[in-house]
């Protein structure tokens, strides 16, 4: 059986989780409140752990071991969406990204609990439980700060408008969309995007934030094909700095 479509799906999900987990971990020690510092550290651990689990599935399908895959590839070999690689910037952007991305991920893993690939369905069931806390966290803050002061509202609105074209890139069509749907592995990016839109609309409608007309926004795609912003390679260089001192050494 040809696992190429499945592998492509697993790679993009694993890379998303690893890169955003890495970005979240940059908040450790820097969070605007102790509780937020701790929350972003927790989500970072979950996400990096989830990426490890997905790379492990890939390893079982014949790919290299997770450390090699994560720590030795170059940017053009990564399949994450560009949204997750953007620098953290101010807290408002980190929060909006967290909201837009984790809403999609929670729905993606929810859909994947029904995947015909059993190991993925089982893993998705576990991950879905973890992501519930991530979306709870994001929704709580978006509702709170999205209706708080003129400054918090305008900051979040600005970040929302900046992040949306990248967020639409989460749903970049896969080369194997038809095969994945036909094999019952995944219901497809388009179905996911529809669910995502309904969800973010419902949360944003409880705030003073305005969701722009998505039909007027040009999605920023390419991440799934290995095209990235200038921010990914420096992130990867940093991530592998110690590992590459001697890749054969045990650390």
């Amino acid at each position: 059986m040809d696992h190429t479509p499945l592998k492509e799906l697993l790679y993009k999900m694993a890379d998303d989780q690893l890169i955003l987990g890495h970005r979240n971990s940059e908040w450790t020690g820097m969070g605007p409140l102790l509780e937020e510092d701790i929350a972003f550290s927790s989500m970072a651990q979950d996400k990096v752990g989830q990426s490890l689990a997905l790379y492990t599935l890939l390893h079982e399908l014949g790919e290299s071991d997770p450390d090699t895959v994560a720590f030795t590839r170059n940017a053009n070999q990564f399949h994450n969406c560009q949204l997750v690689e953007l620098p953290n910037q101010e807290y408002d952007f980190s929060l909006i990204r967290h909201f837009l991305f984790d809403t999609a991920e929670a729905l993606r893993f929810e859909m994947l609990t029904r995947s015909s690939h059993q190991p993925l369905a089982q893993l998705a069931t576990k991950i879905r439980g973890e992501l519930r806390y991530h979306t709870l966290h994001a929704n709580t803050w978006i509702k709170q700060l999205g209706s708080a002061t003129p400054e918090s509202i305008s900051r979040l609105q600005k970040s929302l408008e900046y992040a949306l074209p990248f967020a639409l890139g989460i749903f970049e069509t896969s080369l194997y969309e038809k095969e994945l749907i036909a094999a019952g592995i995944f219901e497809g990016e388009q179905a996911l995007q529809q669910k995502w839109l309904a969800k973010i609309e419902s949360i944003l409608s409880q705030t003073s934030l305005q969701l722009p007309d998505l039909k007027l926004i040009q999605p920023i795609v390419g991440g799934r094909q290995g095209k990235h912003t200038e921010h990914l390679q420096p992130l990867l260089d940093e991530m592998s700095e110690v590992f590459k001192i001697d890749p054969t050494a045990e650390w």
Binding site: E26, A44, V48, F71, F243, I245, W251
Partner: peptide, 13 residues
């Protein structure tokens, strides 16, 4: 962000 390998990265986090 520089810990070598998954095990160290997750433990240090």
């Amino acid at each position: 962000t520089r810990a070598p390998g998954f095990k160290r990265k997750m433990s240090l986090m």
